[in-house]
Computed example of a mutant assay.
Amino acid sequence: MIKEEIERAFRELSNWGRWGVDDQIGTLNNVTPQKIAAAARLIREGRVFALGASLKWPLQSTPNKGRWNVIHSYMQDGADAHAAFIDGMVEYSDDAIHMPVQCSTHWDALCHTFHGGQTYNGGDARDFRSKGPPKLGIEHTANRMAGRGVLLDIARFKSVDHLENGYTISNQDLDDCAAKQGVSVGQGDFVIIRTGYQERFLNSGNWHTHSYSAAPGVAFENCYWLKEKDVAAIASDTYAVEVVPASADGYGFPWHSVAIPSIGVTVGEMLYVKELAEDCARDGIYTFFFCAPPLNLPGGTGSPINPQAIK
């Protein structure tokens, strides 16, 4: 893939101005109250599947990229409370976590990725300074992350436990998988792709290279699929959603460079989907009510989440 193809896609697929010059949520505008109400009717039995990876899993194994795994510490434990007890006082424990917002299961905010020095909807990347971005922070999506979820289980569709590293998921793969599962993907949907990538590391107990190795993922052409389907957001069980490495001239993550700053798609990474996928395979139902609110973090370039799929 050459740079001109990426630049052309950036221009042709742009949603800049579609929802107004001040828009800060991109394709999440496709999630209307009517769509949320319809998605709620997908709940039949009240089975809830948590899609957030355990914060104990060392998903980040890329020290040269500046991210680290969650640091969880206790400021006061039971022994401290007992030692400090004074009659009539409340005894309590207290702890804290220290983590990059994108070190585990998370959303990428629209201010996370730039292209040619620009953000989604025509913002200037230079306006994003050390105290945060002037717009497009994750807080703007705090009440937008609910609707119809669709699981596309590509690994199961291909009859494998996991896709091979570097496997490129084509638009045809996505459409064929949806057809076999008996589902449609359309405007305002939250699409979740299962590759089996995370499960491979979980089963082996060795997380080495998890966040920087070659990985399966969507092809660059998926940008066109996203625009055609007009989905609200896309997520997967890998750390990048797009295939790694990508064959692109001068771009490490070409799909990101169009999907987020041009189309305005919110991207979710490192979702834990094993149990949801097994349940979908059992009952043949691959749609569900999906809810995954981010932290209300002004200026956040992303947010840790524990998404819920409810059937």
Rank of each mutant, 00 (worst) to 15 (best):
M1S: 12
I2F: 14
I2A: 07
K3M: 14
I6V: 15
A9S: 10
S14L: 09
W16R: 13
G20A: 08
Q24V: 15
K35A: 13
I36D: 02
A37V: 10
A40L: 15
R41E: 14
R44G: 12
E45Q: 13
V48I: 15
A50N: 12
G52N: 03
A53G: 07
A53C: 13
A53R: 07
S54A: 14
P58D: 06
S61E: 11
S61V: 12
P63G: 07
N64F: 15
K65F: 14
R67C: 11
R67H: 10
V70A: 08
D77I: 09
D77N: 13
G78N: 09
A79P: 00
D80F: 06
D80Q: 07
A81H: 01
A83W: 11
F85S: 08
I86M: 12
I86G: 08
M89R: 12
Y92S: 08
D94Q: 14
D94H: 10
D95K: 08
I97M: 14
I97Y: 10
V101L: 13
C103H: 08
T105C: 14
H106G: 04
Q118R: 15
G122Y: 04
R126F: 13
D127Y: 05
F128W: 15
S130G: 07
G132W: 01
P134L: 10
L136I: 08
I138Q: 05
A142W: 13
A142G: 06
V150C: 15
L152A: 06
F157Q: 03
K158Q: 09
K158L: 11
S159W: 07
E164W: 06
E164D: 14
E164C: 05
N165G: 10
G166V: 04
G166N: 01
G166H: 00
Y167A: 11
L174S: 03
D175K: 01
D176T: 02
Q181T: 02
G182D: 04
V183F: 03
V185F: 03
G188E: 06
D189P: 00
R194F: 06
R194I: 05
T195G: 04
G196S: 05
G196E: 03
Y197N: 02
R200A: 14
G205H: 00
T209Y: 10
H210Y: 15
A214D: 13
A214T: 08
A215Q: 06
P216Q: 03
G217W: 00
V218A: 07
A219M: 04
C223D: 07
C223S: 10
W225P: 00
W225G: 05
L226P: 01
K229H: 10
D230T: 05
D237P: 02
T238D: 05
A240R: 11
A246M: 11
D249F: 12
D249L: 14
G250K: 02
F253C: 09
P254Y: 02
P254S: 08
P254K: 01
W255N: 05
S257M: 10
A259V: 09
A259H: 01
T266K: 03
T266S: 12
T266Y: 15
V267C: 10
Y272V: 07
K274D: 11
L276G: 02
E278Y: 07
C280K: 03
A281W: 09
G284Y: 00
G284D: 05
I285Y: 08
Y286S: 06
F288T: 04
F290V: 04
P298N: 00
P298M: 06
G302K: 01
S303D: 02
P304C: 09
A309Y: 01
